[in-house]
């Protein structure tokens, strides 16, 4: 069965680790930026799983933890540039939450590079492509998210989260 994490590319040569990234996209900027990348036929890695939300401020830290628990190797939150949030400062709330989450993820054994927040404006198809490609490349280098903890996660409930701490 296709798994989120640890998939490798088949074919000639050495197998390359292909990370899976969940990207939470603001409807008003990053979603449009991603579409702009598509309209421009830019080449993007197939590793990104986009989730459309009305605002990056909607991303609950729990959504991020669930994504990791379900096998994501990285989580990307893409919002409007500061000062351009459709809802004034949802993007800034997202920034604070990401800062806190990264501090929590470190001790849990999740490298902080696995969670990133970037600003992508509606017209910035090229920037969208650069951001997602850059993250895919850095996660390829980093490797899968702790195979032992990721593989023991069959569900994403609280006991599992505690197990991860004990590990």
């Amino acid at each position: 069965m296709e798994r989120g994490s640890g998939a490798t590319q088949s074919g000639e040569g050495p197998a390359v680790f292909e990370p899976v990234i969940v990207a939470f996209l603001c409807n008003w900027c990053a979603c449009e930026g991603a579409d702009a990348a598509g309209r421009a036929r830019l080449e993007l890695p197939a590793n990104v799983r986009p989730v459309r939300l009305l605002c990056s401020g909607r991303v609950d830290p729990q959504h991020v933890l669930e994504a990791f628990a379900c096998g994501a190797d990285g989580v990307l939150i893409l919002g409007c540039r500061p000062g351009e949030c459709r809802y004034r400062e949802g993007n800034l709330h997202a920034m604070k939450r990401v800062a806190l989450l990264r501090r929590l993820l470190g001790p849990l054994g999740v490298e902080t590079e696995r969670l990133d927040l970037e600003w992508v404006a509606a017209g910035e198809g090229k920037r969208y492509a650069e951001v997602v490609t850059g993250m895919v490349e850095s996660l390829r280098a980093l490797g899968p998210l702790k195979p032992q903890s990721a593989s023991t996660h069959t569900t994403a409930k609280a006991p599992d989260a505690r197990t991860k701490v004990e590990l």
Binding site: M1, E2, R3, G4, V20, V22, R49, V51, L53, D60, H63, E66, A67, C70, G71, A72, A156
Partner: peptide, 13 residues
């Protein structure tokens, strides 16, 4: 949101 994320990560089946 959780259902969408899980399914996109292959947990849906």
């Amino acid at each position: 949101i959780a259902a969408e994320v899980e399914a996109m990560l292959g947990r849906e089946d």
